[in-house]
Design a protein around this nucleic acid. Sequence first.
DNA 1: TAATAGTTGACAGATTTAGTAAGGCATGTT
DNA 2: AACATGCCTTACTAAATCTGTCAACTATTA
Lengths: 142, 142
Amino acid sequence: MRLSTKAQYAVRAMVDLSLNSAGRPVSLKEISRREEIPLNYLEQLFYRLKKGNIVESVRGPGGGYILARGSSHILVGDIVATVEEPLNPVACLDEGSEVCSRISRCVTHDVWKGLGERIRGFLDSITLEDLTREARGVSSEE
Amino acid sequence: MRLSTKAQYAVRAMVDLSLNSAGRPVSLKEISRREEIPLNYLEQLFYRLKKGNIVESVRGPGGGYILARGSSHILVGDIVATVEEPLNPVACLDEGSEVCSRISRCVTHDVWKGLGERIRGFLDSITLEDLTREARGVSSEE
DNA sequence: TAATAGTTGACAGATTTAGTAAGGCATGTT
DNA sequence: AACATGCCTTACTAAATCTGTCAACTATTA
Ligand code: FES
Ligand code: FES
């Protein structure tokens, strides 16, 4: 029941982006340095994030990425779902999949379905703005 | 964010066990046949389930497994946690692990921690009895 | 036109998972 | 006592997934 590092990296990178973008685009190079995430790996992640309409890119010198919308409208669940395709606990929930077993029409199916809904529900209850605000608070504390 | 087949098999097998044990022990051979789960694989699972005090074994001919306590006191979360050791979404929650990054003392950490708690909370809210009852209902419906 | 920075696909190494194999042990039956 | 049943335990392998790297390309701006 592990989240992939993709998801962890993506969320951290998005917080970093939101935190350090003062109107201007932020390059992956910067994020890579600050967050210690391999640049090439970040590229893959942002490729997906862009296709998921979570960020927009600005090409050329001085370019980079910017948020596609206000951070209060970007949910952690969006980021995770975009980068880690099917957020379902079991394969049969994915799309055109068959039932896993015949016993009583698979009672356990509903359990996993409910679990998936809880997971999504929780991650969708947190916005990028929440994390950014918290990050600012934490770094000035102590 | 996938559950291992271990967890899926284990829960299904436990429902099967609870459903088919009328006081007498149920052999893994039976469960294996009914649920179409490889016998050797089941043995591994029940080895753990026994160590987790969820089932008890009866050796010798006519032996098998029985529930260690009433099905209303066995939580789905117990089964999953026993068979799929650390139920945490990220490694740093496990035990003696280091912090994943230094940015602002890792804001995302609390998110994953909360997620783990939700997952456990949900799975702990369902008992084996719930599933057994449902299984009985479903098979007679329709 | 040269430098910057994003875009995209291919690929390899490491790790994890799923499943198999095999031998041993305990218990009850004949 | 011998045998059959069925649990107990470890070891191993094949397959899938995950993580990260490489390399070549395209668009933009100074
Ligand atoms: S059919 Fe979905 S868990 Fe069995
Ligand atoms: S330290 Fe736990 S997620 Fe970063």
